[in-house]
Design a protein around this nucleic acid. Structure first.
Lengths: 191, 191
DNA sequence: AAATTAAATAGATAGATATAAAATTATAGA
DNA sequence: TCTATAATTTTATATCTATCTATTTAATTT
């Protein structure tokens, strides 16, 4: 998040008002004074001032003094830059990069594990069961070959229905084994 | 205004919220269920539902049912379309096309003319005086040649200081004349 | 059939924000 | 110097909206 997020949000907030959008439209045609803009929008000059200040904050408009007039103009360059940034493929994923993709997993684990890390109950829900299986999987090392007995010991440390969980780990593709059940290993799917 | 205005405004309003922007960011990475999104944003699922409904209204996201999950995905095409529209040069001026450019002039005229259309008082202000001069100008025909006496008669119908106004009309370039003052005519500047 | 689960909807509330009126500041002209 | 005017700032108010809780709907599992 941070910079790109805050910038984008400020940009959208600035344009998410009917009068401000109209101001942008008017200034896109020609630069104007507060008084003129107020007359055209039929609202109070102080309100226009207020809106222009918001637009100026993110540098979408700028003002110059001319006598006691403030002439505002649109900063088209900055507007274009924002639109282009929005089009850039990496912008949106970037917005969420600091958000917690693991939060759902933690929520599921919190709901189905005991304090000591053993499994309180197996979720019937496929998605949630998947979270539990990935949790179990962490107790198996990559590249190491396990006997069925070793697998049972590890799983058994977490839950009573050992053969069920063993089958699940294989059916979802997290682990694999020899046909005869003589060897088990963790599958590397690098995700 | 109308379509392009309403569409643009709805678009900005939809994205002008921190959580909605985060949702877009998350969905830009991968489609997800309401429950997952709620866990990641650490807010109530009903709130997420509400936000997604807003985003779906303008077709920025879409949902498909999967069991009793609703899996939402980002409609990248529509998002890109909006960003591109924003970049199009004609979009912004279009936004204000129905707004009343003449409102300021009317306001000035209302302030300085009497009911019968004669000039109550001359504004000292350059901009406002300009409005009055353009008002007067309408009483002169394009292409027609006037004698100074005719000019005086027309102006005199509006205000006492005839020679002052006559000079102003020429100095701002709305009218021109022969050096010797024998002929006056309206200048065509096509604006 | 009964119970469970996710999502959506409705209702209520707190917080944010657009607006206008009044007061203040700055500039121009007399 | 005094008065006009345009803009801004401040203050108050009214409207809007994000959020949560509670309820309803729809789908799945036992």
């Amino acid at each position: 998040m941070d910079e790109s997020f805050d910038t984008l949000l400020a940009f959208f907030k600035a344009l998410a008002d009917a009068n401000r959008l109209k101001l942008i439209g008017l200034l896109a045609q020609k630069e104007s004074s507060v008084e003129e803009l107020a007359a055209m929008l039929d609202i109070n000059p102080s309100t226009v001032s207020h809106h222009l200040a918001k637009l100026a904050e993110i540098k979408l408009v700028s003002a110059r003094a001319e006598g006691y007039y403030s002439i505002y103009r649109l900063e088209t360059t900055n507007l274009e830059r924002m639109a282009r940034q929005l089009l850039a493929k990496e912008t949106l994923p970037e917005v969420a990069k600091d958000l917690d993709r693991k939060a759902y997993d933690r929520k599921v684990l919190k709901d189905y594990l005991r304090e000591d890390g053993t499994i309180e109950q197996l979720p019937t829900n496929r998605r949630k069961l998947d979270v539990i299986l990935r949790y179990l999987l962490e107790y198996f090392e990559f590249g190491k070959i396990y006997t069925e007995k070793q697998v049972n010991t590890i799983i058994g440390g977490f839950y009573a229905d050992i053969s069920g969980l063993r089958r699940d780990l294989i059916s979802v593709g997290y682990m694999d084994r020899e046909r005869d059940g003589s060897a088990y290993w963790r599958v590397d799917e690098s995700n």
